[in-house]
Amino acid sequence: MKLDIAGSETIQTDIESLWRALNDPAVLTRCIPGCKAMIETAPDAYKVEMQLRVAAVGGSFEGEIALSDKQPPHTCRITVSGAGSLGHGNGEAKFEITPQEDACLLAYQGVGEVGGLVAGVGQRILGSVSKHLIGRFFTALRKEFEPGQALGAAE
């Protein structure tokens, strides 16, 4: 089934820091819900391992993330594909960062497609689950910029 993803979030930081964070596998590993590991396989290409649960279906997924059309520090296209025994998915989204007064506006828009058991069993809640997961991502991302966080540093 197809999913439309779009929204915008305000992050309390400057545009350069936000750009760096979004390009840092360590930050992304902490922020992407269920992400266990993110390994760089080529410039701007990563292999990820995730553990996720949707409705009655949960399991591990292996995926690839690629960044393209980069125009630092403003826009970037992110392509995600993943598959596990319980489902598969792929998606593409475009990020756009606009500086604001002591913050940045991060707007994103994209489409995803989900198949397998996850689509069949979880379809009725997949829309809200994706919103929830995106929400968790941004909550975690904001935390990265809170005082006391070692921004961008690997653990």
Binding site: K2, A56, A119, G120, R124
Partner: peptide
């Protein structure tokens, strides 16, 4: 089945 060929009603929830 949805347009992507996935069965949407495969449990008694649906």
């Amino acid at each position: 089945y949805d347009d992507e060929g996935q069965l949407l009603t495969q449990s008694f929830m649906d």
